[in-house]
Simulated assay, not measured.
Amino acid sequence: MENLINDGAFLVDVRSAAEFAEGHVKGSVNIPVDQVQSQLAKFKDKKHIVVFCRSGMRSSQAKSTLERNGFTNVTNGGTWQSVNSFINK
Rank of each mutant, 00 (worst) to 15 (best):
M1Q: 14
M1F: 11
N3K: 14
N3Y: 10
N3R: 11
N3I: 13
L4P: 11
L4T: 15
N6T: 15
G8N: 15
G8P: 14
A9N: 15
A9F: 08
A9Q: 15
F10D: 15
L11E: 13
V12D: 12
V12P: 13
V12N: 15
D13C: 08
D13F: 03
D13P: 10
D13T: 15
V14K: 03
V14E: 14
R15N: 11
R15K: 08
S16R: 06
A17K: 14
A18W: 00
A18T: 14
F20G: 08
A21F: 03
A21K: 14
A21C: 06
A21M: 12
A21N: 08
E22F: 00
E22L: 05
G23L: 03
H24E: 10
H24R: 13
V25P: 01
V25Y: 03
G27N: 14
G27W: 10
S28K: 03
V29C: 03
V29I: 12
N30T: 01
N30A: 06
I31Y: 01
I31S: 03
P32I: 08
V33A: 09
V33E: 08
V33M: 10
V33C: 02
V33G: 07
D34F: 04
Q35K: 05
Q35N: 12
Q35L: 10
Q35R: 02
Q35G: 02
V36G: 02
V36Y: 00
V36W: 02
Q37K: 05
S38E: 14
L40T: 01
A41T: 15
A41G: 15
K42L: 12
F43Y: 08
K44Q: 14
K44D: 11
D45I: 10
K46Q: 14
K46R: 07
K46F: 00
K47R: 09
K47H: 04
H48E: 13
H48M: 04
H48V: 07
H48W: 06
H48C: 02
V50C: 02
V51A: 03
V51C: 01
V51L: 09
F52G: 05
C53E: 12
C53F: 10
C53D: 12
R54E: 05
R54P: 05
S55W: 00
S55N: 09
M57S: 13
M57R: 09
S59A: 06
S60P: 04
Q61S: 12
Q61E: 14
Q61I: 12
Q61K: 07
Q61R: 05
Q61G: 12
A62I: 09
A62N: 10
K63F: 00
K63R: 13
T65V: 10
T65K: 06
L66Y: 02
L66F: 03
E67Q: 06
E67L: 07
E67G: 03
E67T: 13
R68V: 04
R68G: 08
R68P: 01
R68W: 10
R68E: 15
N69T: 11
N69H: 09
F71N: 05
N73D: 10
V74D: 09
V74L: 04
T75W: 02
T75S: 08
T75C: 04
N76C: 07
G78I: 00
G78C: 09
G78E: 14
G78Y: 04
W80G: 03
S82G: 11
S82R: 12
S82L: 07
V83H: 04
V83Y: 04
S85L: 09
F86W: 14
F86K: 05
F86E: 11
F86M: 07
F86V: 00
N88G: 12
N88C: 10
K89S: 13
K89R: 15
K89M: 11
